[in-house]
Design a protein around this nucleic acid. Structure first.
Lengths: 220, 220
DNA sequence: GTCTATATCTCGATAGAC
DNA sequence: GTCTATCGAGATATAGAC
């Protein structure tokens, strides 16, 4: 936590015992893949390599287990790549770091992403307090990005765009293709044959499209 | 079906009886909001204002009901606004129609959108044949849009972007903020107080951002 | 803390009268 | 076609020995 007031991955995990961490990993996997209602306590127990009764020993019931897993996942979402984003010298660099950071984070945390999307689709009852904390911290990538956009607009480095809408647009393009991966792979040949290659190509495309969308015309 | 080989909304509904349509509407609502596993046959029956046993009379079981509802929803997704898109004279107009068409379609069919996203998150087992038909029809908005992008690139009206990636990017920005609506509303004040206004503002922002992202610099 | 056995309950599905 | 009553699978949760 050297240069951030957000907890690191290690910090978050230190709160829990070995067994609890096993349960967490297993529960995240199952909740993300099967959904909150479709998840089976037995399957979580099997995945965590413990007895089913132990699940109820560590977490009273399915509800509280889900709640804890969701809270843990949210905090991890917040604690990713704020630092390198702050240091970016130009807006072009800011945009590159933001796109790369988000795409890589989602690529390597697809279950966390699925949990987030599922929760939003279901109405987002659990989101409330966590998002407020995120907002209050002022140190998470979305906040920093918005500030950088505001600064770049003020300095004339980019056009007079709405920072909040821009944030939503950039995040959408970085995440949604992971959400719709089965559809994308059915339609797009390259995505089906080599997903990793497709993701790399996509980062390039996104920077190109969004950077040109944001900077003023060359003769302006 | 005057100027399209895709079925219209009325065509689709004509296949089913009054009671079946009631069931469809109810099932779509419940499946979309609660997910495939979380949906309860009792709740669907209540929403359709029929007896639970009648559900099993019309549709053998939950599986087939879900399958039929999903297939119906997919066909509706395909059959929306292909015609007006074809007629767009300039690329700017094409982009406007596409953004407006997608945003409005999702705005007025949020349950259909939820079903699609849920299905993709769950692995997209049911997507296969439907997407192939969509691809084969050659008459759905995504195909037309890709063709228009290719033509605009060839004519120099827009920069040399990858049409497929561009399609994914545009659709992402049109849909994802609906998916994450609870999160967006927690972070963004205007979205929380007046969602309709936010959606309108978003359409403007998207056209501005993406059009500038696609057209060549003014002095080129 | 860990496990087996079991209680309890929800929900999908069916039987059978009308 | 419609309804009531109920069955039976499968899931959550707990009791209680070790």
């Amino acid at each position: 936590m050297a240069d951030s007031n957000l907890p690191s991955d290690a910090d978050l995990r230190a709160e829990y015992s070995e067994t609890e961490r096993q349960i967490f990993d297993a529960a995240l996997r199952v909740f993300a893949r099967k959904g909150r209602a479709g998840a089976r306590m037995q399957e979580i127990a099997d995945a965590a390599d413990i007895n089913k009764a132990m699940l109820h020993y560590y977490f009273r019931n399915k509800e509280t287990l889900y709640g804890e897993v969701f809270a843990f996942t949210m905090r991890r979402f917040m604690a990713s790549f704020g630092a390198s984003l702050k240091e970016a010298p130009t807006f072009a660099e800011t945009l590159r770091v933001f796109i790369d950071g988000y795409v890589e984070f989602v690529r390597t945390n697809q279950d966390a992403m699925r949990l987030m999307v599922n929760e939003n689709l279901a109405g987002g009852t659990h989101l409330g307090e966590h998002l407020k904390r995120l907002k209050a911290s002022g140190d998470a990538p979305p906040q920093i990005f918005v500030e950088k956009v505001e600064a770049a607009v003020a300095s004339g480095e980019i056009r007079a765009v709405d920072p909040d809408h821009t944030l939503v647009s950039v995040i959408s393009t970085c995440i949604f293709f992971f959400v719709m991966r089965p559809t994308v792979q059915t339609i797009h040949a390259e995505a089906a044959s080599d997903w990793g290659e497709f993701v790399e190509a996509r980062k390039e495309h996104l920077f190109d499209l969004l950077y040109h969308g944001l900077v003023p015309d060359a003769d302006a």
